[in-house]
Design a protein around this nucleic acid. Structure first.
Lengths: 149, 149
DNA sequence: CAAATTTATTTCAAGCATAAAACATCAAGC
DNA sequence: GCTTGATGTTTTATGCTTGAAATAAATTTG
């Protein structure tokens, strides 16, 4: 490998470490806020967020696909949310294997409160960037994530 | 809140979601590779990486500070690494509370192999960016992480 | 120096995450 | 209508992660 490529490789590694650091910084803040002020967690918030966008409900497999986590993982989180009365599970008629999960009225209410707070927390953490910088970052990072469905 | 701020707030939220997505994309790949090809994990890799930079060893509390994770967390990871013979723990003379952790010769060897592979994996994932783009991303994300010691 | 506080670490309980195995149901093809 | 295979979900084993409580040793202070 030549010198230019070695340099490039180092920069890529450096970027990855910065991504990790930045992500951890924001995520830690959000986790702590959710725990302290709403007695909840980021995974629960993510599940509720997906269900809030699909008010008619989602199947377990749709949920895990959207959140890009394993099936078994979603099983546990939904179970706890159901225990708190924030989501409910219903059978899907025509397919007795499937489970339809949706927010309860209380879940909708609680999510609205959390989502509003969540937006202000993210605002605080990312307040240093100008609109142009935000656009730049979004456009560049977009090339990495695979939210291209 | 006025229209401009609402717009800005939306962009910040959008950026945060992109950061999550991008981070998850890369991390998932690295995790899978480490597991399949080196029978290891990212947390173990992180601990070994820190110890590789400090060959004289680090205390448990230094380790958790550098990695920005909890003390109890490091206890478990170091325990498993010690079980695999990759790190060793020694007493610190002058302070019987403390533990000094360092890589064993085998740990040094194993880390070198993993680190080389790790760099090529990151290379693959971030290969779409030009040198200029990498610089831009690094500089911008640098304003978020708190690796300013 | 004894008591109180701080510092270094581990233990514990709870939850999150994965991969792999187990179950149950559905859909096709003979 | 059986068998075979695919699909939807849960269970299991293992490991990571946190916050809080528990231990233990060092330091400070009256």
């Amino acid at each position: 490998m030549n010198a230019a490529n070695r340099q490039l490789s180092k920069q890529r590694l450096r970027l990855w470490l910065r991504m990790l650091s930045a992500q951890r910084e924001v995520e830690g803040y959000l986790r702590e806020k959710l725990r302290a002020e709403h007695d909840s967690t980021l995974p629960r918030f993510d599940v509720m967020s997906a269900l809030d966008r699909y008010r008619d409900g989602l199947r377990m497999s749709d949920l895990s696909a959207k959140l890009k986590v394993s099936n078994g993982n979603v099983t546990g989180i939904v179970e706890r949310l159901a225990g708190e009365g924030l989501v409910e599970r219903a059978v899907v008629d025509g397919d007795r294997r499937a489970m339809l999960v949706r927010l309860t009225p209380e879940g909708i209410q609680r999510f609205a409160e959390m989502a509003a707070a969540h937006e202000t927390w993210v605002d605080e953490k990312l307040s240093d960037f100008t609109a142009a910088e935000l656009d730049t970052l979004i456009k560049l990072l977009d090339r990495l994530g695979d939210h291209h469905e």
